[in-house]
Design a protein around this nucleic acid. Structure first.
Length: 296
DNA sequence: GATGCATATTGGGACGCTCA
DNA sequence: TGAGCGTCCCAATATGCATC
């Protein structure tokens, strides 16, 4: 098993078939087919089930994918670090931010990073906390801003900032920013929340458990924009930090009130995989995030 | 260390097979 | 019938080894 065969294997998984993967790798389909066959022969197991319409990964193939992605990412970082010794910070960096962070802060971060490290191929994606943690664990992401608590022990993290949660409802509900709502009351009605693998849901469920309340989650939405739209239509209320709802409050489509008794804070952390060393490009980004985004 | 030869590996093209 | 994969054959390239 060598890195070249693993790279082919992962490309076939990503592309969903030999033909499209061969185009990405600038090989012919037949050459890629043989690479795959060679890997399966080396390992003595079938990694794909062949059908007349493509390749379906076997359970062993999936198992190999889970182990191979971090390995390949580590190899790429190693190559980039060696190159960095000669050329400054280089290589590729994949950063993920949750949509609730907004667009201005990530855009400024990108501009600043590009100014400082123009040789790094930077990829920034927007995703919810659960998806970001998956991406970090699978080696598809290098760094991520994630809402605490994390659902995986395979990640390291450091706190960036804390935000108080607000109860958010359709505009007709009459919530007033000057009239805080007790947590027990905020959790009593029908709620629109993210799925159970995301930080917001874990946080709210933890608070409800502390009060001995059972949540009434009417809709699970893994998208901030759809969640806000769903709340605006009156299908339920939700809990979010002020920053995530600022624009909707200004437009009058939603109303909100801070939660008290107790106040609930959502903690945003910088997270990275525990089993891999950060590349120089990632270390540089982490430093920039600490300098630009961290606040007490 | 440089060179030449034999062998292995890799890739491209053509074609056949399978399946929706 | 067309899309996608496997196999065969040939050419190019890489590698190993002996010789000078």
């Amino acid at each position: 098993m060598d890195s070249k065969l693993l790279k082919c294997f992962l490309h076939v998984l990503d592309a969903g078939g030999l033909t499209s993967a061969s185009e990405r790798l600038h090989l012919t389909q037949s050459a890629l087919s043989r690479q795959l066959k060679q890997l399966e022969s080396d390992l003595g197991v079938a990694l794909f089930q062949r059908t007349g319409r493509g390749l379906i990964p076997t359970e062993t193939g999936r198992q190999l994918e889970r182990r191979a992605r971090p390995l390949m990412a580590e190899l790429e970082r190693l190559a980039a670090d060696i190159a960095s010794d000669r050329q400054g910070v280089t290589g590729a960096l994949a950063l993920a931010v949750p949509p609730s962070v907004g667009v201005a802060a990530p855009a400024n971060l990108i501009r600043r990073y590009r100014d400082l490290y123009p040789q790094v191929r930077l990829r920034v994606v927007s995703a919810l906390s659960g998806a970001i943690q998956d991406g970090l664990l699978r080696g598809r992401l290098d760094l991520g801003l994630v809402h605490h608590p994390l659902t995986s022990a395979g990640l390291l993290h450091e706190t960036l900032w804390r935000e108080r949660l607000w109860l958010v409802a359709e505009s007709a509900a009459g919530l007033d920013p000057e009239t805080p709502v007790p947590l027990g009351e905020a959790l009593a009605g029908p709620l629109v929340l993210t799925g159970s693998r995301h930080g917001l849901r874990v946080l709210v469920e933890g608070q409800a458990a502390g009060l001995g309340l059972a949540l009434d989650v009417t809709v699970e939405v893994d998208s901030l924009r759809i969640m806000l739209e769903t709340v605006a239509l009156g299908l339920g209320r939700t809990l979010l930090p002020y920053r995530a709802i600022e624009a909707e409050l200004a437009s009058g489509r939603l109303c909100a009130a801070p939660v008290i008794s107790p106040e609930v804070e959502r903690v945003t952390v910088l997270a990275w995989p525990a089993d891999r060393a950060l590349s120089r490009a990632a270390e540089a980004m982490a430093e920039l995030i600490r300098a630009e985004l961290r606040h007490p």
